[in-house]
Computed example of a mutant assay.
Amino acid sequence: MPIAADLRTFSDDSPPAGQSPYLRPPSRAPIAVVPYDDAWPDRFAQIAAGIRDVLGPRALRVEHIGSTSVPGLAAKPIIDIDLTVADPADEAGYVPALVSSGWVHTVREPWWHEHRMLKLTEPSVNLHVFGPDSPEPWRHTVLRDHLRADAADRERYAAVKVESALAANVAHETVDEYNARKQRVLREIIGRAMDAAGIPV
């Protein structure tokens, strides 16, 4: 498990010169931010059960994260899941099994916490793979739990998401560029989430 200081530190996920994280080109399709759907938790539960069936004990943690995990929060209609495995760099230990059950390997970022991402199209799911020492899954759950409890920050985040999606669509941007538009507000909210959780500076 990462130390508290790691949870407070945002590391740069930009690729080294000449490298790309994308195994498939990122989409520039319009970004939709829609009202919360009560079906999302059940959808996650079904997908998580499938992941555990495929990977067995290799799936150390399977967590519903992101905006679809926060009741009442507007979100892109894409279920985000954090999967923790012992060693994300050991792709042979989990990627083929997931691909054989319909997942598509789309991102490889060894320079950023050994992050990998796989996708499903129907239902639409992003599966983020990290190791047990990565701060990212822990930061995601702290943020999730804070947004579930704090209506004011939930409303702030919803507003910046809608605003960022509108601007990104006008500029025909990717999801990465959309994420960059809302990053400042999101990081302010994460700081308050860390405070609320008692995680020291």
Rank of each mutant, 00 (worst) to 15 (best):
G102W: 08
A152R: 11
A32F: 05
Q183R: 13
A45R: 15
P2Y: 07
M194K: 03
P41R: 12
S164C: 04
E173R: 09
R61M: 12
A197Y: 00
T174E: 12
R156S: 04
I78M: 14
P123C: 02
V34P: 09
R116T: 10
A151K: 06
H105S: 07
L98Y: 08
G198Q: 10
D80S: 02
V142G: 07
S27N: 00
E163M: 13
L55P: 05
Y36A: 15
E122L: 15
A5I: 13
V34M: 13
P25Q: 11
A74N: 11
V175Q: 01
D90L: 10
R187Y: 14
L120Y: 05
N126Y: 07
G56F: 15
A5S: 10
A168G: 11
P26Q: 12
L83E: 01
M194E: 03
W103A: 00
P88D: 09
K182Y: 02
L186T: 10
V99Y: 01
G18P: 06
K182E: 01
P96R: 10
H64T: 03
R28P: 00
V125Y: 00
M1A: 13
A193W: 10
V201P: 05
A159H: 09
V107S: 02
R187F: 09
D13Q: 04
T141I: 12
N126H: 14
L98N: 04
W111F: 10
T121D: 15
P110C: 09
G198R: 11
P35M: 08
A167G: 08
H64D: 01
V175F: 02
R28C: 01
A89I: 03
A59T: 05
D195E: 08
A89G: 14
G191T: 13
F130R: 11
D38K: 11
G18A: 10
G72E: 04
R187S: 02
A75W: 06
D53V: 02
A4M: 13
K119L: 05
T141E: 12
E91Q: 14
S124D: 15
T9M: 02
W112V: 04
V142N: 11
D37S: 15
D6P: 03
V175E: 00
Y178A: 06
L98H: 11
D195G: 02
L118H: 08
D82W: 02
A45S: 15
G102T: 09
D87T: 14
W103S: 00
S101I: 05
I31W: 01
Y36E: 06
D153G: 06
R187T: 09
V160E: 14
D42A: 15
G66Y: 00
D150W: 07
D153F: 08
G72W: 10
